[in-house]
């Protein structure tokens, strides 16, 4: 079994209201060195496959079909070694 770790993030050009609100709150907490916050999603996926390449293909398909909306989001897949 392969364990995939997936990060789904909003494209840099897309406004992130949640990140903006968190950034604002952090500034209020005095963490004024923080210049920006972007919030995305972290997803762990267990997948049965005979090798990592096959597993990657399956996870990529899961991301582009459902887990990420490629109109505004990017995804990045890493496998636990």
């Amino acid at each position: 079994m392969f364990k995939a770790k997936v990060n789904v993030t909003l494209r840099p050009s897309i406004l992130d209201p949640k990140g903006k609100a968190a950034h604002h709150a952090l500034q209020n907490l005095g963490l004024t060195n923080i210049e920006g916050v972007r919030i995305g999603k972290f997803i762990e996926i267990d997948v049965q496959a005979s090798n990592e390449e096959e597993a990657r293909g399956i996870v990529e398909s899961a991301c582009s079909k459902l887990l990420a909306n490629e109109v505004m989001e990017d995804f990045e897949i890493q496998f636990e070694s």
């Binding site: 209201p17 109109v71 505004m72």
Partner: peptide
């Protein structure tokens, strides 16, 4: 309908959350 790709674009959270 957007998610289904029947119309173009996507929805984000409201600007002021």
């Amino acid at each position: 309908l957007l998610e289904a790709g029947l119309i173009p674009g996507a929805m984000r959270h409201n600007e002021q959350l």
